[in-house]
Design a binder for these strands. Sequence first.
DNA 1: GCAAATTATCAAAGCGCTTTGAATTTCCGA
DNA 2: TCGGAAATTCAAAGCGCTTTGATAATTTGC
Lengths: 364, 364
Amino acid sequence: MLTQSEARALFDTINLSALNGDSMNLKQLSADLGLSQTTVSRALNGFPEVNEATRLRVAEAARRYNYRPNKRAKGLATGRAMAIGHVIPISSKHEIVNPIFGDFIAGAGETYAAADYDMVLSVVSDADEIEAYGKLNAKGTVDGVILHGPRLNDKRIALLNDIGLPFVVHGRSSDTALPYAWLDINNRQAFERATDLLLDLGHRRIALLNGIEAMDFAHRRRAGYEAALIARGVSPNPDLMRSDEMTEGYGYVAAAEMLRLAIPPTAFLTASLITAIGVRRAIEDAGLKMGRDISVVTHDDELSYLRNGDAVPIFTATRSSVRMAGRMAAQMLLDQIADPTMPPQEHLLEAALVIGQSTGPVLR
Amino acid sequence: MLTQSEARALFDTINLSALNGDSMNLKQLSADLGLSQTTVSRALNGFPEVNEATRLRVAEAARRYNYRPNKRAKGLATGRAMAIGHVIPISSKHEIVNPIFGDFIAGAGETYAAADYDMVLSVVSDADEIEAYGKLNAKGTVDGVILHGPRLNDKRIALLNDIGLPFVVHGRSSDTALPYAWLDINNRQAFERATDLLLDLGHRRIALLNGIEAMDFAHRRRAGYEAALIARGVSPNPDLMRSDEMTEGYGYVAAAEMLRLAIPPTAFLTASLITAIGVRRAIEDAGLKMGRDISVVTHDDELSYLRNGDAVPIFTATRSSVRMAGRMAAQMLLDQIADPTMPPQEHLLEAALVIGQSTGPVLR
DNA sequence: GCAAATTATCAAAGCGCTTTGAATTTCCGA
DNA sequence: TCGGAAATTCAAAGCGCTTTGATAATTTGC
């Protein structure tokens, strides 16, 4: 018969951790190895002052016990969370929980995983977004954040600067005085080129189904569109411009209405593939054929589950992978965290203009 | 002139924390209040043994200093991570980074936020998924996980049971012996009813564009579809069944091919709205009209940015909000964590069958 | 062959919180 | 007015890690 403490001692020597996950810890592991916690910790973290033979022995034991340093303890000791935050405001108006976000997150997640960082998502109501950053920062939940969906003169940028939490903006914010790190595509130029293409094909009544124009990207796209029109002496027509959240239904309704105008547009420029799909539906409902009767150019974020055709694109499009953007933005942030003295990085990606089956010369 | 230590002392009394986030902490706060850390901690955490006047004084100071307990320290002391994990395997084959996932996450995120839990996303390569759970568990990163995209006899369920990490499955896994917590929609019945509807309309050649059938939900949907056919004496025709990832392109290609058959189908049953959009494109490309020449029924997850029409649905559909499912699954998991003795909860949601403009009687 | 330098290891403090067990204060009825 | 119960508050230990500042073991230089 064992005494209670004997039983306890025996129990402790048995390796349960590999099975039930009840955490082998450093104390236990170093006791088993007959080493100090210091040495074991250093062996595992690649410090130079530990004997190579010892290191091997430690590594082997760690593997056998499936030992993984407790994240909270490590974080508390080092002062680093090893996590990056993404705040997702949820509102009826502007849904950032959209397909673009999913792909961006996937890309960023790949980068985090490679660097052994976690990704923390905070879903908050629109009103609580500002507070959410303060909270993440004060609680020390994350080492940095990615800022999504920047608006014109976005006040979140100043906030993050003030609280001193490293961040990278996916997109840019016009009229923001402070320097800040950002990764954006050249929205203005992309839409200018897209509009140019349509003008080259003889189109003069070109409709713009833009995203919400309080969003910086949409603002820039409209600027590109208007600049291209004006450069050819076509004055932008308010009847042919809409701005809304980029849903399929928006594309359908807006296009259907415009096609019923006395002088309907001959081409559409839309802000997302999903909206373009709505436009196509409206075109076909009107008994017309896309690419012959009506041209469509869209922006294509190369979403993984919504491809714009295979070899030959369905839609003529300005194209830039949002997933790649996620990977890059995440890396920028990790770099900045690793070296906080670095000046804010800026990254402007050019979108490709790919020709698909949705555009053609204007009919006379 | 101040000595260094005087300057330091002064510095310490100034409330910088509210501005720069350099963490007011419990020690500092209780020193300022002239109270012990114990009392301050208890005041903030609502323990009964603290004087109400004191509690007010503490709360007020905490607010003024924007004090938020350090998450890692709290977690280390309590042994709880206050975080839930979602593992997202990323592979070329089966993209879980799909629109459904985004909405589910949004729903779950709402529940977590309300309970002051964080959401941790782990993006891993397909091969690393199993290890990812072990890692999250051993490091103590999360208190539980949601299991996504269960397959038939999914081995991840046994793994999570073994390591003792609380989890809830979004979906179910047929042929799994162990009891486990799950939330699923009644896929079988939904597709049985959808097929019934088409049969009632006189259709006999009904095509099924299913999801990947290694996935449990797709397996059940096919079972429902076949059961309905057989009940009416129609034998399932392999030429009219496909199974693949639910993209738009898949819907288009599969439908286009089937419409070229010697005896083409008169109706399609598809697994997602996106696939249905591809089917519609194929129908229109073939010069036919959806709802008149060809009927389409789809499953609709009520994604926030991809609505199936407004008042009148575009597609006749089996409908169930995946966002709501996210909310519920998250709550189930939190409940289970709060009371680990609870037997695993099971939740079966029925899908609504809503009639849209995409179905009609078969043409003779 | 011995002091000095180098290498390998360790004990203990500290990260910021919670919680235990004890100490202090206040309140009440006898 | 006094002793015990109730109400408050506190000091200290502990969560599992890293890191500092020794200490012990081994080599090296002369």
